[in-house]
């Protein structure tokens, strides 16, 4: 639970301080946000499954964001940045969808 609390605090601090992101990192932001969403939904589902774990949540969050950004970076270097971004978005999108469906089944039993 500490991890969730920390994330919320961090988000509030982020809103309050509104730090500027270096221009060099701008291209990786959209994918990083989608990856963060995926980790959030995964964590929520694990919470409902009763297997939630702070460390796993944080590690999956961090690695998701870093790997997603890395993939886009590699894609940019290879000249297939947009295609790889699409691939990442598709995979993460499917995961988010099925996690959201599982959460929905948990909450509404439907």
């Amino acid at each position: 639970m500490i991890a969730v609390l920390g994330l919320l605090i961090g988000a509030l601090v982020g809103i309050f301080l509104d730090p500027t992101v270096p221009a060099g990192l701008q291209p990786y932001l959209p994918i990083a946000v989608v990856a963060a969403l995926d980790a959030l939904f995964g964590g929520l589902r694990a919470l409902l499954d009763g297997t939630f774990n702070d460390r796993v949540f944080l590690v999956s969050f961090l690695s998701n964001v870093v790997v997603a950004a890395l993939i886009v970076f590699l894609g940019d270097q290879l000249g297939v940045g947009t295609q790889l971004s699409t691939a990442v978005v598709v995979v993460l999108g499917i995961r988010i969808f099925s996690n959201a469906a599982a959460i929905r089944r948990h909450l509404f039993k439907a």
Partner: peptide, 24 residues
């Protein structure tokens, strides 16, 4: 110690994510 590390990492991730969202 573990809880503190978790909290710090979580806060950092929260800040990073939120600033990414705001920047977008």
């Amino acid at each position: 110690l573990r809880a503190t590390v978790n909290l710090v990492v979580a806060v950092l991730l929260g800040v990073v994510t939120m600033s990414a969202v705001l920047a977008l």
